[in-house]
Every structure is written in C-alpha cells, then in structure tokens.
Amino acid sequence: METTNITTDRIKLPFNFDVVKMLEETKILQSGNFEYYDVIPLRSPAHLVDTSLPFPPPAEDYADGSWTDWLDTSALNKSPYLTSIVNFFKEHTTVNLVRLLRLAPHATVKEHTDPTLGLEIEKSVIRLTIPILNNENVTFYLNNTPVLMKPGECWYMRLTDPHKVINNGNEERINLTIDIIPNDWIKQVIKESES
C-alpha cells in the first residue's frame, strides 16, 4: 500500500482505551517526584531488560528497530491493562519501544523533529500516542497547530514534522507511546481514519 497518499500530519485512529485503568496502573509505577520529564519504559531493547544478554552488534541503520530484539519490562508485566493494550497491537504488527512519558507541571518539551517517526520514511517506525492524563492547559503542537487529543484516544502523528509540548497546568501530563513497524494493517487503519 502506498503511504505517500496520507495528506494530513495527524490522524485520530478508531481505538479507545480505558483511561481509569491506564491511570491506575501508571500511578502504581511512578517512582516519586521528578523534574521536567520522566520516562517509564514498558518495552525496551532486550539487552536493557535482561542484562545477561549481549549488546547487539552495531547496525548501519537503527530506524526500523530491527537492530535488536525487544522485550516487555517488569513495569509492563506488573500492569495487566497496559499489557492488554500492547498485546492488541502485537497481534497486528511488530511492537518495538513502549513508554509512559510524563511531563511535569509548567514544563515544556522544546520544538524538535523525530527523523524516523513517519510513514513517509522508508524503513522507519511510527509512534502511536495514547494520552492518559491531560488538562486543558496542556497543548501538543504539530506544525505550530494544536493537536486536540483526549485521554483514551489513539493518534498517529507525523513526527518527522516539528512538534513541541507545553504544560501550563498544575498537574503532570502522561502519554502512552507505542512504536510499531508499519505494515499493511496499520497503514490501512491510518488511511481509512484520515477521511
């Protein structure tokens, strides 16, 4: 399937997840106070999960995630509902990196691009974003335009374009991000959701 036909930089996908269950499990995994930005890995390169495994050999191209095996972390194994979400995507495609991304109150993620996170890039992964905890003072900007994501929704965004996050609220923002290798299934879902 051609992926260059995708004309928009953001697409809400037809998946919705239980925010209460996601937040409940996320709160259990949190490790106290943090400054600015915190990452809780749920699925990581195998050698980081099981330190008895050797580092993978150097790769010419790390973009598609095939340079290593990926394993569920102990944090994911303690979280049955988050595991069910990851397993849903594993049933349909290859899942690489999965993380909970926490942004502190009154913090900003500066504008940047992720050169390998877009369908238009050959041999890439795409990132699906599922907001868990948000407030009306958090804004995710893609190409200087807000993306109005609600907790529990699932979004594909072309992150090869400039994006930033501003949290002007008094509570943290938490997103679940799932990096997958694009296959015909997810390309079809994205294409059908675009219209």
Rank of each mutant, 00 (worst) to 15 (best):
T68H: 00
S66T: 09
L101F: 15
G65F: 12
I85R: 01
N77L: 15
V98A: 03
E60T: 14
L71Y: 01
S44R: 04
P80F: 02
K78E: 11
N77H: 10
H112T: 06
P80K: 01
P105Q: 07
T51A: 02
P56I: 03
P57S: 10
R43F: 05
W67H: 00
L117A: 06
A63D: 08
R43P: 00
G65Q: 06
V49W: 00
D114K: 08
L53M: 10
L48V: 06
K110A: 08
N87Q: 15
P56K: 08
P45G: 04
F89G: 03
L103N: 07
P57E: 13
T93A: 08
N96H: 11
S66C: 05
A104P: 00
S52C: 09
K110M: 06
F89T: 03
R102T: 13
D50L: 05
V109F: 08
D69L: 03
G65Y: 07
D69T: 05
P105K: 02
F88L: 15
D114L: 13
K110Q: 09
K78I: 11
A46K: 01
W70S: 05
D114Q: 09
H92E: 10
L97A: 08
A59T: 09
H47W: 03
H92R: 12
D64L: 11
D69I: 00
Y62G: 13
T73D: 09
Y81G: 02
P80H: 01
E91F: 10
V49P: 00
E111L: 04
P58H: 04
F55E: 12
V49R: 01
L101E: 11
T113N: 01
L100Q: 09
D50Q: 07
G118D: 03
N77T: 13
L101Y: 14
S52P: 00
D114T: 13
R43K: 10
K78R: 11
S74A: 13
N77W: 08
S79Y: 06
L103E: 08
W67A: 01
T116M: 13
L97K: 13
H106P: 00
P105T: 07
